[in-house]
Amino acid sequence: MEKFGFSLTKARVIDYDANDRSIVSYILEREPSLNLCIECGCCSAACTTGNFTGFSLREIHILLKRGENDLVRQKIRKCMLCGKCILVCPRGVNTRNVVFLAKQAFTKNEGYEF
């Protein structure tokens, strides 16, 4: 679809104030270690799923924090919960629980079924 002018750039902008950050709040309440992520990408580099397809846990973390939930929802089911990311994370983020809680949050808050 062709769009011109302002609307085209708007889609690129993260509208922080308009975005819904209830999902990340739900996760942070239960797994505060998500706050410790320094975006080093080690989880994504080790990722079993990431070896096959576009899936980056680091990206998921930052998207959640910015409230860009649609992108997360599309991607998060790809995680195999294998746990390699936990072993490599230099900040001790409990990455598996972040995925687990995100799925839970989507099911609860938005009635989204995985």
Binding site: E31, N94, R96, N97
Partner: peptide
């Protein structure tokens, strides 16, 4: 891996 909640 049996425990998804346990902190580092």
């Amino acid at each position: 891996l049996g425990n998804i909640m346990l902190s580092h």
